[in-house]
Design a binder for these strands. Structure first.
Lengths: 343, 343
DNA sequence: CTGAAAGCGCTAACAC
DNA sequence: GTGTTAGCGCTTTCAG
């Protein structure tokens, strides 16, 4: 270890009291420019490094934010996390990461994060935080932010799912499709429900009728049905309809669209010539698969999540804010629009 | 905030001195079972939460490990990080994450992590840590671990790149291919160089000759050429060879293979019927693309990285250890092996 | 403007 | 065994 120089060393060396040293180190106004200069010079010469934990103890704040995130999901989280990290380090805070594999772990991690003074705020990603934990969280009065999930008691940042689904479906309609199916995820998932609503509304606003038959959900319930296999299964189901099968689909996530495309290809359907698809998320895979999809501003969401959290730390009585981002349509090839344009 | 109960509160309430309280809380042997029981009961009743930073200050250790990781990148890091996180939380340590977008940032983050007492150890992922920083790191005597990179002065965990490349190439040879090309990344990258060696050796050991012409590198140098566009460009180059073009390729990363496949498809080549491919990494995309590839044991690498780091913390004078993992061949469809087997 | 001193909450060495 | 006390390194009154 570097032979730990403390402010006492600087004080002795510079000929001042530790109070003064602390003041210049913290940019306190009442210090003469000369002493400031001198102290800084000595600090630098001694290669002084503050002891973070001593500061945190004395200041009664941690300058750290923790994020509880379901890990292995996809690109979406990594991307949001990037935004989080970016903003956090800009603020000079630390990010401590808790990766959760199973909902049951949330409580344990929350307890750790809740240790008095440990963190200044917590961000929960796409978590169904157990009510029990929610209550404890509320009691602690610690600034909390929810990303990609919503609860009346905490600030949240989420995506306008219904709106995005509406736009995706409308795009297909504008392309001339009238029989449009939807591959959805499990209805226990709020985003899935909202996306269904958007799809339905788009249909109805454009004078098309909504049919249950045209909405299918795969059997695989992993990640609430937002997985590749579920998409494959749902599309396989559709294919069994034969000539009754819709020729355009709004799929509630890109990863499901991957599965759907595989099912399509295996059955001799080409995308977009035979079947048009629009996904949701714009995960990294989407570009490679040339999938038209609804992009969520992930990085920005991460940045905003931190900004909000910090704002609340500064002003705990701030009114609770729920922010919703609108996804944007990214037109690639799977919807068939580009082909049409070439004509 | 929870109305901060301290060990003083417990002491008063339970009728003991704070020393005793601290002892039971730390499982110190010399406490009567009865007092222990009593203290625990009171602590629980008061909902006592230790103040992490006070503990860290007093104990002179941080119980936290930080990881400096190039973010953007792919599945590989996330997966290794999962292993890291898993082991870290098993140990009750905290993980503080520093995401680096550009090598220049490394120094800044290193400085932050190096603040006296801040972390008990640091893990650098796939980083060309600047020499300057390396020297400072060495001086601090802080336990450091390198993941996916190597330096004589620090413990490291990496992948047997040459060996993996050898296996991939040999697989293609066993499948009957004699003219095998390689799409490589920039030679400033150590892994790229090692993979080239493995490829070359496999060729020579099997009596095939190595030709420079059969090794191409894309122009896009982002991430040292380990990117989709570079793969696309390199394959486009090969395609220009016309009938001289190899019909089997070892590609130095899956992401490049994605680009290569796109180039192939655009030019009317089918994979694996016309051209066989083997990638490297086994990123998530690989499964979807049915890519045969060399899998790296990412999760395990993360776990081991932490185990090593912790071992070094316990015993700083331990001999420096360099561990190399062997990638395993994952046979999917892109190499053509499955098709052949069906015959 | 600056020094002295009192904490921040906990651990650990030292008495009894 | 248990209480007492002295730090851990820094921030922050409070005098002067």
């Amino acid at each position: 270890m570097a032979k730990k120089v403390t402010i006492y060393d600087i004080a002795r060396e510079a000929g001042f009291g530790i109070g003064t040293i602390s003041r210049v180190l913290n940019d306190h106004p009442s210090v003469t420019p000369e002493t400031r200069k001198k102290v800084i010079e000595v600090a630098k010469r001694l290669n002084y490094q503050p002891h973070t934990y001593a500061q945190r103890l004395a200041r009664r704040q941690s300058e750290t934010i923790s994020a509880v995130i379901p890990f292995f999901t996809n690109y979406f989280f990594i991307e949001v996390l990037r935004g989080v990290q970016d903003k956090i380090s800009e603020l000079g805070y630390d990010l401590v990461l808790y990766g959760v594999e199973h909902p049951d772990q949330v409580e344990g991690y929350a307890s750790r994060a809740l240790q008095r003074g440990k963190v200044d705020g917590i961000l929960f990603f796409s978590m169904k935080v157990p009510d029990k934990v929610l209550v404890r969280l509320k009691e602690t009065n610690l600034p909390i932010g929810l990303v990609d999930s919503v609860s009346p008691d905490f600030d949240s940042i989420s995506v306008a799912n219904a709106e995005g689904a509406y736009a995706a479906t409308a795009h297909l309609i504008e392309l001339g499709h009238r029989r449009i199916g939807m591959i959805n995820a499990q209805s226990v998932s709020a985003p899935a429900l909202e996306r269904l609503q958007g799809y339905r509304r788009a249909l109805e606003r454009h004078g098309l009728s909504f049919t249950d038959e045209f909405v299918r959900i795969g059997r695989n319930t992993k990640q609430d049905g937002f997985n590749r296999d579920a998409g494959y299964e749902a599309m396989t189901d559709f294919i069994k309809m034969g000539s009754e099968m819709p020729k355009a689909f709004f799929v509630s996530s890109d990863i499901q669209a991957m599965g759907a495309i595989a099912a399509l290809n295996e059955n001799g359907f080409r995308v977009p010539e035979d079947v048009a698809l629009v996904g949701f998320d714009d995960i990294e895979l989407a570009r490679h698969m040339r999938l038209t999809t609804m992009r969520q501003p992930m990085f920005q969401m991460g940045v905003l999540a931190i900004e909000r959290l910090v704002a609340r730390m500064a002003n705990p009585d701030m009114e609770i804010l729920h922010t919703t981002f609108s996804p944007t349509l990214i037109v690639r090839e799977s919807c068939g629009a580009l082909i049409r344009n070439q004509n």
